[in-house]
Computed example of a mutant assay.
Amino acid sequence: MNRSIHSFSYSPLASRVIFGAGRRADIAAEAARLDCKRPIIITTRDQRYLGEEVAQQFEPATSSLFDDATMHTPWEITQRALGQAKEAGVDCVIAIGGGSAIGLSKAIALQTDLPQVAVPTTYAGSEVTPIIGETRNGEKRTQRTLKVLPEVVIYDVDLTLSLPASISAASGLNAIAHAVEALYAQDENPVTSLIAEEGIAALATSLPDVITAPSSVNARRIAQYGAWLCGTCLGTVGMGLHHKICHVLGGTFNLPHAQTHAVMIAHVASYNAQAAPHAMASIARALEADSACAGLYDLARELRVPQALKDLGMPEEGIDRTVELVMKNAYSNPRSPDAKALRIMLERAWIGFPAAPIE
């Protein structure tokens, strides 16, 4: 195989990753390794029971449970959690759940420098990134800082077995989006590109089995492995148009995070296809498809995720506002943002048309 290796930089992130069934039993021990014993435990209301289970690993009355983590990390929720953490005198943050819980944990760490133990129950990948997205005054903004990178991540496949098939599918496509954008990132490198292709392949092969046999430990294990790899890509290199659009859509119209990624990923790949041929070849290879765009669209259809932004609650009149916000700030992307082309792409995604090349 002929390879051309260009000049690059690669900065691996310093997180401790623990992988395996039943490993959530190690949470208190991992907190102790960080010299911590008074955690605030972050969950959503639906997963409060997991937080209560974690609390049992600590001495009575030494932990505090906050169960109001909310999608897109609204600042008012963060303020409440910070107040509880201060009142309880905590020395670390433990997040158990999906992106909402982990996002709030990061928001607390950003303000306090408290160490974090993240225990994900979905495939979103945020747990291995130094990225935080927060929503203030109706606008979601992201930043990169090592202050929010969890010190320890525990992947317990047992925690994913109860994740509904529809959420598993959307969450998995969300993870794949990280790897897709890593392959055409301005700061892409050979290491991250290898990780990205392997992550896409692992999820593409396992997610259909997760949908048809949700209790399959092997399928869930492979999907979790793929999600970790894709999340590692998200944390290592910069993201482009896809993530910009999804953050605008989520923060402005309160659309569900993973489902928005699932709708948009094939469309944005089509938008970028001609400007990033090597990335598209890697994606197609990982998907075992004729093209990246067709492969992503076909996988989404097979997984029966939503196909249209209108089905997620986005108003049609929001398309122009989305274009305006996407064009507002500069960001890296292989194809320069063009308002007319973006509008066409978003119109197709709003209706639910298949992804198609956009001139």
Rank of each mutant, 00 (worst) to 15 (best):
332 S>W: 07
100 S>D: 04
232 T>N: 03
102 I>W: 03
156 D>Y: 02
86 K>F: 09
180 V>K: 01
121 T>I: 12
273 A>S: 14
246 C>F: 08
345 M>Y: 05
144 R>I: 03
160 T>K: 01
329 N>S: 12
315 P>G: 07
55 A>V: 06
286 A>V: 09
300 A>V: 00
126 S>K: 07
328 K>C: 09
110 L>W: 10
274 Q>I: 12
72 H>S: 06
295 G>Y: 05
36 C>H: 03
257 H>D: 14
322 T>Y: 15
253 F>T: 11
344 I>L: 15
157 V>Q: 03
246 C>G: 02
330 A>K: 08
2 N>C: 08
73 T>D: 11
91 D>G: 08
215 S>W: 03
331 Y>E: 03
345 M>G: 02
272 N>Y: 04
81 A>H: 02
256 P>F: 06
285 R>H: 15
49 Y>V: 13
259 Q>I: 01
122 T>M: 05
288 E>R: 15
116 Q>R: 11
15 S>F: 11
335 R>I: 00
62 T>Y: 01
276 A>D: 00
164 P>G: 12
286 A>E: 14
355 A>N: 11
204 A>H: 08
258 A>R: 00
101 A>Q: 01
238 G>L: 07
158 D>G: 06
132 I>H: 11
299 L>F: 13
3 R>P: 04
156 D>N: 05
19 F>V: 09
248 V>C: 10
76 E>M: 14
289 A>G: 09
23 R>T: 14
137 N>F: 07
2 N>L: 12
102 I>N: 13
317 E>Q: 10
14 A>I: 08
174 N>M: 12
78 T>P: 01
240 G>A: 14
190 P>A: 10
69 A>R: 02
44 T>N: 02
84 Q>V: 03
171 S>T: 09
332 S>M: 11
343 R>G: 03
211 I>G: 05
13 L>E: 12
211 I>F: 14
115 P>W: 00
31 A>Q: 03
89 G>P: 00
338 D>G: 05
205 T>F: 09
89 G>T: 10
267 H>Y: 13
228 W>T: 10
87 E>Y: 02
43 T>F: 01
40 I>M: 07
166 S>R: 05
66 F>R: 01
324 E>V: 09
187 D>W: 01
251 G>L: 04
334 P>V: 03
311 D>S: 15
146 L>H: 13
134 E>W: 00
157 V>A: 12
26 D>P: 05
270 S>W: 04
58 F>G: 11
227 A>M: 06
56 Q>L: 13
35 D>W: 02
191 V>S: 04
287 L>M: 09
298 D>S: 10
260 T>F: 01
77 I>F: 04
53 E>R: 13
108 I>Q: 01
312 L>M: 14
335 R>E: 06
146 L>Q: 15
115 P>I: 13
187 D>I: 00
224 Q>S: 14
359 E>Q: 10
225 Y>M: 09
330 A>N: 08
163 L>D: 06
303 L>H: 08
113 D>W: 13
22 G>I: 15
269 A>F: 04
223 A>L: 02
202 A>I: 12
327 M>A: 06
287 L>K: 01
315 P>H: 06
88 A>T: 00
91 D>H: 04
311 D>L: 04
242 H>V: 09
121 T>V: 10
181 E>L: 04
24 R>Y: 02
315 P>R: 13
298 D>N: 15
332 S>D: 13
188 E>K: 13
317 E>F: 05
